[in-house]
């Protein structure tokens, strides 16, 4: 029984449209035109309890819009969503008590007061018992290492500290389902790593179901076994991260170490040259005949060492997004 199921979700935004120039401005005064812009265009997937799924795609792909529909903020244009047995848009109290949406830029913390005051407010709003509040707060403060920070007014905190406090405020009610929208955006490398460790640990410790969007491959690579790749509002891949490589890489990468420099034109006839530094040359060749090409090159050229690899995931995904 999946904990999240989405069928044919579509969300269209109406954006005001103005023809260029003065005439267009006058026209739009009288009759404002709208363009229907599909942000999410027929998305379907299911997620089981305890899964940590990565949602990746370029800017404007529809990741945030999907998460907003899943958490009940947006009314879907069409399609069915079921999260924990609820229709999110109804925003039933028992539904909201079990989910959380964390967005990189959003802040629910009171700016002028210490973060602790917001935690206390949420304690009342979510009707958390004192015992549970203390227990969860303590474990979150410990994992995130912010014991000395929660008593300082939020406006005096650094971006990283604030983000950690936002996380505590969003997780203090121990949600079963968590939507994380670009949680590492704007953080330095060390903080990004801390946060990844935290997400992994939270997923284990609380057996929570998480969907994480990001356009940093690092986040997804380290955290998610399963990824959903979305582009132009449509799912283009849903499966194990490793399978992206198998499914989408049409090329392999052959790296040759030569004993002396050779005419690059010979190599060019086998495939596209990616790089050549001194005696080290990398070419991309079609996967199907990569073994045969490697054999021919070994025979023809003064090869010291040869290495055949799959291309980087980043590379493949970039190709997926730039193709048409």
């Amino acid at each position: 029984m999946p904990i999240i199921s989405v069928q044919n979700l579509r969300k269209t935004f109406q954006v005001p449209y103005k023809e260029p120039g003065v005439a267009g401005a006058l026209k739009s005064l009288i009759h404002r035109k709208y363009l229907e812009k599909p942000a999410v265009d027929g998305v379907s997937f299911t997620i089981e309890e305890g899964e940590l799924v990565g949602f990746i795609g370029p800017n404007g792909a529809g990741k945030t819009t999907t998460l907003k529909c899943l958490s009940g903020l947006l009314f879907p244009t069409s399609g069915e969503i079921d999260v924990l047995g609820f229709r999110p848009f109804d925003r039933k109290k028992t539904f909201l008590q079990q989910i959380s949406l964390v967005m990189g830029q959003k802040n629910q913390l009171w700016w002028d007061l210490p973060a602790m005051e917001t935690f206390l407010l949420n304690k009342e709003i979510y009707q958390i018992t004192e015992k549970q509040f203390q227990r969860v707060l303590q474990s979150l403060v410990e994992i995130l290492q912010v014991a000395d920070v929660v008593q300082i007014p939020v406006r005096n905190l650094s971006l990283g500290q604030r983000m950690k406090c936002e996380l505590i405020a969003a997780l203090i009610h121990q949600p079963k389902v968590i939507f994380l929208d670009e949680p590492t955006i704007g953080l330095d490398v060390v903080m990004q790593q801390n946060l990844r460790t935290f997400i992994k640990e939270y997923n284990h410790q609380f057996n929570a179901t998480l969907i994480l969007t990001s356009h940093y491959m690092e986040d997804v690579k380290e955290l998610c076994e399963r990824v959903i790749v979305i582009n132009n509002g449509k799912i283009v891949f849903d499966g194990r991260l490793d399978d992206i490589v198998k499914k989408f890489s049409t090329d392999k990468k052959i790296t040759l170490l030569l004993s002396k420099s050779v005419d690059l034109n010979i190599l060019q006839s086998y495939g596209q040259i990616k790089s050549s530094e001194g005696n080290k040359v990398t070419i991309m060749v079609p996967s199907a005949n990569s073994r045969q090409i490697a054999a021919e090159l070994l025979a023809k050229l003064p090869v010291v060492d040869v290495n055949i690899e799959e291309p980087e995931i980043e590379e493949i995904i970039r190709q997926m997004f730039t193709r048409k």
């Binding site: 009940g72 903020l73 925003r91 109290k93 028992t94 909201l96 008590q97 949406l101 949420n122 709003i125």
Partner: peptide
Amino acid sequence: LVKYLLRPI
């Protein structure tokens, strides 16, 4: 409004 809508109140 997002931060209000997400809370069960």
